[in-house]
Computed example of a mutant assay.
Amino acid sequence: MLEWLKGILGESYTEEIDKKISAEIGTAFVAKADFNAKNEALKAAQGQLAEAGKTIEGFKALDVEGIKKAAAEWKAKAEQAEKDAAAQVAAVKFDALVEGAITKAKGRSPKAVKALLDLDTLRASKDPEADLQAALGELAKSEGYLFDTGETPPPYAGGTGTTPPAGGQDAALRAAMGLPAQGTK
């Protein structure tokens, strides 16, 4: 174990001396590997301590009131975004309700029917479905042409408006322009 000791002690060297010296060295000295490991751990801890000190200095420079104010502003923005999203969802649902009701009432042009409805009043209504049905019923009575009622229009009266005016097809046009009838000069 302690080969270097044999060289120093020469013939006086014994196993008992080797054991005593080994035991004494273990209590008074630290192995080189253990020393290097502890030394590296110390350097790492000192580096972390220096970094923590810099971070603490950075925190000292922070404006806590400004951060609180910014947090309150972001909270208000988030609440407003939630309200806006809820309003958009409600608008889409209302538009779908109106479109569905117009289709159910056999509206020919949903755009034209919507233009004649008071959508703001219907949006504010406590029972928009019932009020929408009532409004569409009223509109169907007053503006029936916007709805397909299933009734067929009166048949075309054949022969009306097909007789050319007297004096040929161009006579009325010539008279309107102040020209003499065709054939006269």
Score class of each variant (00 low, 15 high):
Pro110Lys: 01
Lys83Pro: 13
Glu151Thr: 03
Arg108Asn: 12
Gly26Tyr: 06
Lys106His: 07
Ala115Trp: 00
Glu73Phe: 02
Gly26Ala: 05
Leu49Met: 13
Asp118Leu: 10
Pro153Met: 06
Gln46Asn: 04
Pro164Leu: 03
Ile21Met: 03
Asp120Trp: 04
Gly159Thr: 02
Ala37Ser: 11
Lys111Ile: 07
Val89Lys: 15
Pro128Ser: 05
Val113Leu: 04
Gly178Met: 04
Ala90Met: 09
Ala45Gln: 08
Phe147His: 07
Pro180Ala: 02
Gly7Ser: 08
Glu51Lys: 06
Tyr156Glu: 04
Lys93Cys: 01
Gly100His: 07
Lys141Pro: 12
Leu2Gln: 01
Ala90Val: 06
Ala61Arg: 15
Val113Trp: 00
Lys104Asp: 08
Glu11Gly: 15
Ala23Pro: 12
Lys126Cys: 05
Lys6Cys: 08
Ala61Glu: 13
Val113Lys: 03
Lys54Thr: 15
Ala70Ser: 07
Trp4Met: 05
Leu62Ala: 09
Gly53Ala: 08
Lys20Tyr: 01
Thr152Trp: 02
Lys104Glu: 11
Val98Glu: 00
Ala28Gly: 13
Ala85Arg: 14
Ala135Gly: 02
Thr152Met: 06
Asp118Lys: 12
Arg123Met: 13
Ser125Tyr: 06
Leu117Arg: 02
Ala115Leu: 09
Asp120Asn: 09
Lys111Arg: 12
Ala96Arg: 15
Asp118Ile: 08
Lys83Leu: 12
Ala50Ser: 12
Gly183Cys: 11
Gln182Tyr: 08
Lys38Phe: 04
Asp118Trp: 01
Tyr145Ser: 13
Asn39Cys: 05
Leu119Asn: 01
Leu122Val: 04
Gly100Ser: 09
Trp74Glu: 04
Gln88Pro: 15
Ala44Met: 10
Leu136Tyr: 00
Asp118Phe: 05
Glu65Trp: 05
Ala90Gly: 12
Met1Tyr: 06
Gly58Cys: 03
Glu143Val: 14
Ala171Ser: 14
Asn39Ile: 02
Ala181Gly: 11
Gly26Trp: 02
Tyr145Gln: 10
Leu173Lys: 14
Lys77Gly: 05
Glu138Ile: 12
Ala50Gly: 06
Asn39Lys: 08
Ala90Lys: 12
Asp131Trp: 04
Ser12Phe: 06
Ile67Met: 13
Leu42Tyr: 01
Leu97Lys: 00
